[in-house]
Nucleic acid binder design. Sequence first.
DNA 1: CATGAATGAGAGTTCATTCAT
DNA 2: GATGAATGAACTCTCATTCAT
Lengths: 208, 208, 208, 208
Amino acid sequence: MVYKKSEQRKQQILDCAKHLFAQKGYQAAQISDICEELKIARGTVYQYFENKENIFTTLIEQYFENMNKALPDTPVQSAFERGEMPDLTQIQNMLTDYTHAFLLHMYRDRDLGRIIFLEGFTALPGIKEKLFEFFEDRKQRTVAGLRLGAALGVLRPMNADLIASAMMGTTTRVILDFILEGRVTSEDELRPMAEELVAFQLRGVIAR
Amino acid sequence: MVYKKSEQRKQQILDCAKHLFAQKGYQAAQISDICEELKIARGTVYQYFENKENIFTTLIEQYFENMNKALPDTPVQSAFERGEMPDLTQIQNMLTDYTHAFLLHMYRDRDLGRIIFLEGFTALPGIKEKLFEFFEDRKQRTVAGLRLGAALGVLRPMNADLIASAMMGTTTRVILDFILEGRVTSEDELRPMAEELVAFQLRGVIAR
Amino acid sequence: MVYKKSEQRKQQILDCAKHLFAQKGYQAAQISDICEELKIARGTVYQYFENKENIFTTLIEQYFENMNKALPDTPVQSAFERGEMPDLTQIQNMLTDYTHAFLLHMYRDRDLGRIIFLEGFTALPGIKEKLFEFFEDRKQRTVAGLRLGAALGVLRPMNADLIASAMMGTTTRVILDFILEGRVTSEDELRPMAEELVAFQLRGVIAR
Amino acid sequence: MVYKKSEQRKQQILDCAKHLFAQKGYQAAQISDICEELKIARGTVYQYFENKENIFTTLIEQYFENMNKALPDTPVQSAFERGEMPDLTQIQNMLTDYTHAFLLHMYRDRDLGRIIFLEGFTALPGIKEKLFEFFEDRKQRTVAGLRLGAALGVLRPMNADLIASAMMGTTTRVILDFILEGRVTSEDELRPMAEELVAFQLRGVIAR
DNA sequence: CATGAATGAGAGTTCATTCAT
DNA sequence: GATGAATGAACTCTCATTCAT
């Protein structure tokens, strides 16, 4: 037996809930909406999930799991840890790859991205923390990178905390404005966006 | 200005609702919470507002009104329109003033800022549009500025739409991370933040 | 203002719930039954009580409050504590008064008595303990009395714990069989019942 | 007796249901609890029993069947019917044997005893009647015995109905307090209890 | 203007029962 | 016989809103 019917149904409910949450928001989306759309009974949903919150949580967890799989290790840092001394062009390429992967993941799972960006903060207890943790972790790596760069004289002196926050903001806002709002219609558009973003970010921090 | 008792009560309800929405979120905050806190009857609220949504809408409107009062006209553009030719330092100062005013307004009305940033998108129909409009308007001015700068050779060639979005992102993310999360505890901290932000933004776009 | 309308409604709901619980049992009785009977909306009930369990709890509390008011202090014990040495006839009278008061209270609030006797044990957490406590307290006083009597040579030697339990059983079973089942139709029947019960109980324990 | 697998499974379900009902109560115990514990599917239960109530009913029926097997015929009455004239000591022994058998049966099947004592009254229609009938039957025999004894001058004049109820109460309460609450831990404790109970009961009714 | 008791549609959730496989 | 996914009626509880006083 290769596939499991029950797993399929579970995923079916998740998929349905995902686009409902993305469309209406967690609060407004109702269990009965799912049931109507899938033409199943209310009780069926509760065979697969303890409650509404549990559906949401499962979605978020899946998302971050996928995200962590999709994103390469913070590449610049890794290079330094391996004792390499990448030059500026190499760094720029690494960051572009990374940003591209991030945009790509966001684009491919727009619905969930929408949910997380727009609702994650208020929604349920626990989610906010998970989200915060994810972004904080990424930001701290950036802070470390900025400090190292400044120490090496490659980057200008700056308030690394603030600038890391600002850099993160460039990406998240672009995701919001372009990807989640539907202005991007093909994956091909993402590479140039990543390049442009990284160019902007790097210019803002390099020495001279 | 004549003393109007009824206006006072209306504002009293708005103030109360504001911090409740900020604390619990629009959905979770209940009309009865307001009543308890102000020690008034449920019905009284409905003498001043049609419904819950109306309270929210009024808050948002007040906010943008105040914001527009607090913010200087997009200064660089205005200067150009007056036929002036500000140099880079002057532009930097203008932008810093502007950003500072923005941060200040956000800091002074943190509760509402929190509501808008965290809930505005999903909450009620109409709000999202208003919010979008506000940010879009600011962004379009930035786009225009970037294009002009590039045409004059002061700024590097770029995807102005994307970069405008990114620039807006730097500010909004910093507001989120620093002001709304309570890491800023005095207005004095805002000026250096504005300076740092503008420095980052400008470096990202100037020619050379 | 002498009476409070809201207090009346609260009591009205309690009274209604009382006879419904007595008739159908706690689980089977539904909030909507109350609403139908009182011709009020479902929500109204929840203006006065947090939830179904809270209605039940309130009833039980009222009951024990009334019970403690209605019952004279355990009289024999009190007499001894005052240094008196009541003779057997006096003791028998005291016990009869006490038992009579107990039967009377049970008779007058049969519905609640029914609920407590028949459901108290299983129903909600907390109730069982309250009930147990009440009966245990009474029983412990009996145990003390039996031990004292035996020490004084008035009562025969016995397993006081067991006999106290048995004595309590005589009363509770009679309440079950006669009062709660509706075989008693007038308060006048209770005095002879109390006399008969006490006679039986005393004969079972006196020396000789 | 031929080995019947299906009968075994049925009994297995009954045994499981029994301790679940005793632990959680009829309402709170769920069919799925049984399935989990026995590691069988939900549907399987319905191959052996029409519905949940049917499981309960079957348990109760088994119980009374066993009880009737375990209890000797009401012995005093039988003796009289055989024309014998047992003296007080003989009667006391007979009653003690009988009570002992009753306690023993209750002790050996505590779970079911618990269910019956604590839930029987409210639970399902039909059960209450069966229970009532059982106790009423025993009580009527006691009433007859008391009347006969009084007529013969062996017992004092009394309200036989009431006293029979009280006598039954002594036993049932002791079962409740000692056996079902787990204060009895060995069958050996039951004989003295029976003796003490009968001693108390008899003293309450004999002439003089 | 203010009150607050009353409303009632509608939400999430439960669980005994069914039935195609 | 056994399975377990699916059912759906029924329940408790919520809360913005109304309206007679």
